[in-house]
Computed example of a mutant assay.
Amino acid sequence: MPIFDRTKPFNDLPLLPLTEDITNDIDVLKKLVLASRALATVNSNVLRLPNPLMLVNTIALQEARTSTEIENIFTTEDELYKAITDTLKEEQNNTAIKEVIRYREAMWAGYQNLDTNRGIDLETITRVFQQIKNTTSKLRSPQAQVVIKRGQSEFRAGEIIYTPPRGGAIIESLMKNLIDFLNDDQKYVDDPLLKMCIAHYQFEAIHPFYDGNGRTGRILNLLYLVQKQLLIQPVLYLSKYIIINKEDYYYHLGAVNQHRAWKNWILFMLNAVENTSLLTSSLIDEIIKQMAETLAYGKANIKWYNKEINETLFSQPYCKPANLAKVLKRSSRTTLTKYMDELVTAKILTPRREGKEIYYLNEDLIRILQS
């Protein structure tokens, strides 16, 4: 194996599949069973929802916020939830909020592309990147001197820790190989979960775009699981595990670069899938339970309260009268305000004034999402 030099372009990045016999390792196979079982639990819980799409945006928003935190773009749930009520114009939102909302939109763009292209291709991956970065750029240019450095808060700040492959033909060839690996199940017969783990490393090592590769790669993970029908909706909350274990994540990535330490990387990623599947499943359990309690309470205390209203109130943590207008089939501002006041009196919603705007919080949902 050639000596790895962090300061030189990794143009010798090996093509897939792996030459290492990792798929028959007993530790990997045991962890694969546990991760697959936990992932199946998420799917069964999503199917329990009255509308499987109802909570995707809420959970996707958590994934988006956490994924951007990994790359040090911070925002609070409070700011973010208000932004997605669609009552604020984009130019009123700060940069961090825009980044998170673009991540969510990028995930949906990629998800919709799966139906159009019937697979993950370079167009889908590029569209996700472009949505995240709000750009028309494509694969990074051959002359771009892209390097990965330690952050300013880290020991030996500014030190080069990785130099991705460089050269247009090289990047295009590596991406073609990666996409073939993901889509050709006859030539590359590994279990889809193992392929996701391997492909995630390969994508981050190729680093095909000038920026946003981490977020693009994490969305690619979810899209691939949906494509392979291991997830029916892109609701797996993977980024929380990665940010909690951020140092291990980058350590294992680097260990594959330098030592081809595939086993520990795959075990880390399978553990991420297992733990996040259990977390996501528990999150859905709690939301479903709270929805049922709120529906029973609402119907007992408000004569017009029904299942559709309840689902609307649990579709996102903040709402405005306009969010209920379509369900209530009422357009009068006075009437809608009266209904909102009844929800407040019943303590189903809590009002919060921000300047001239009033937002109505579903504090039960916020409590669950922030736990």
Score class of each variant (00 low, 15 high):
G168S: 08
K303R: 08
N306I: 00
Y360C: 07
T294D: 11
A169D: 07
I84S: 03
N301F: 08
I148L: 13
Q202P: 04
K82L: 09
L47E: 12
R218G: 14
K133D: 02
L349Q: 08
N117D: 06
R118S: 00
I132A: 10
P192T: 06
D25R: 15
N51V: 12
S141D: 09
S332I: 11
K187L: 12
I309D: 10
A96L: 02
T345R: 14
E63P: 10
T66H: 15
A255C: 03
A157R: 14
R352E: 12
K240V: 00
R104E: 00
G212V: 13
L193I: 08
F4M: 08
Q112R: 08
K320E: 02
Q370H: 04
I198L: 07
I266P: 01
Q130I: 09
I302L: 15
K149D: 05
A322F: 02
T116D: 01
Q229V: 11
L49C: 15
E105H: 06
E247F: 07
D185A: 06
T19Y: 08
I84K: 04
G254N: 11
L194T: 03
T23M: 12
I232E: 06
Y339K: 06
W265I: 07
T350V: 14
G151N: 14
L336E: 04
A300L: 12
R353Y: 02
S315K: 13
N177W: 07
N323Q: 12
L278V: 07
E91T: 09
E123W: 00
M107W: 00
Q370D: 02
N310K: 10
L53A: 03
N275W: 01
V273Y: 01
I73S: 15
N57D: 15
Y210S: 11
T280D: 06
M1T: 00
M1G: 03
T350W: 09
A325P: 06
A40N: 10
L114C: 00
L47A: 14
E363H: 08
W304M: 03
D78W: 14
F209E: 10
L13D: 05
L238W: 01
V42A: 12
L47N: 15
S332L: 12
I160P: 02
P14S: 10
V46F: 09
I101R: 05
A38C: 05
G167Y: 06
V146M: 13
L34Q: 12
I219M: 04
L230F: 08
D364L: 03
N245F: 02
E311Q: 14
Q112C: 00
V189K: 05
Y103M: 07
L267I: 05
Q316G: 09
I206D: 11
L182E: 04
L18W: 12
R260K: 06
W304I: 04
N213L: 15
W265H: 07
Q290L: 11
V327D: 09
D12E: 08
K187M: 05
K303I: 09
N43D: 07
L18N: 09
R104S: 06
L193N: 03
L336Y: 02
R367A: 08
F203C: 07
Q290M: 13
D115E: 04
A35L: 07
K89V: 04
Y224K: 11
D27Q: 09
E105I: 00
P192N: 04
L369C: 05
T87N: 12
L61N: 04
R330K: 15
V327T: 12
Y339G: 02
T335K: 13
P165E: 02
A292E: 14
D364T: 10
I26V: 13
G298V: 02
D190C: 02
